[in-house]
């Protein structure tokens, strides 16, 4: 199924969870915050929260800034 992650379309397996998405990008769960369909997810929910067709996901992290 198709989702939008950080503004671009991605193909993920049906029933994929957040944790699968992070694995695909090789991202450690404790370095990012995940917003899925405008909801900020708790870290403990990453392996429970299922993606749906058309889900809009934002993967956010701290970067350099003043």
């Amino acid at each position: 199924m198709k989702i939008v992650c950080n503004g671009t379309e991605h193909q993920v397996a049906a029933g994929a969870k957040i944790v699968d998405l992070l694995k695909e990008f090789d991202l450690a769960a404790d370095t990012v915050v995940v917003e899925c369909d405008t909801l900020i997810l708790k870290r403990e929910d990453y392996d429970r929260h299922e993606l749906r067709e058309g889900s809009v996901v934002e993967l956010i992290r701290f970067v350099g800034g003043g």
Binding site: D26, L27, T31, V33, L59, R61, F62, V63, G64, G66
Partner: peptide, 29 residues
């Protein structure tokens, strides 16, 4: 101070904040 941005999915390993010791520095997002 630190900013918040989307992870660059083309280069997801680029996590510059990981070099800073969080015990030593209080992050002010």
């Amino acid at each position: 101070t630190v900013a918040l941005r989307r992870v660059d999915l083309a280069d997801p390993a680029d996590d510059i904040m990981s070099v800073l010791d969080r015990e030593r520095y209080l992050f002010l997002p």
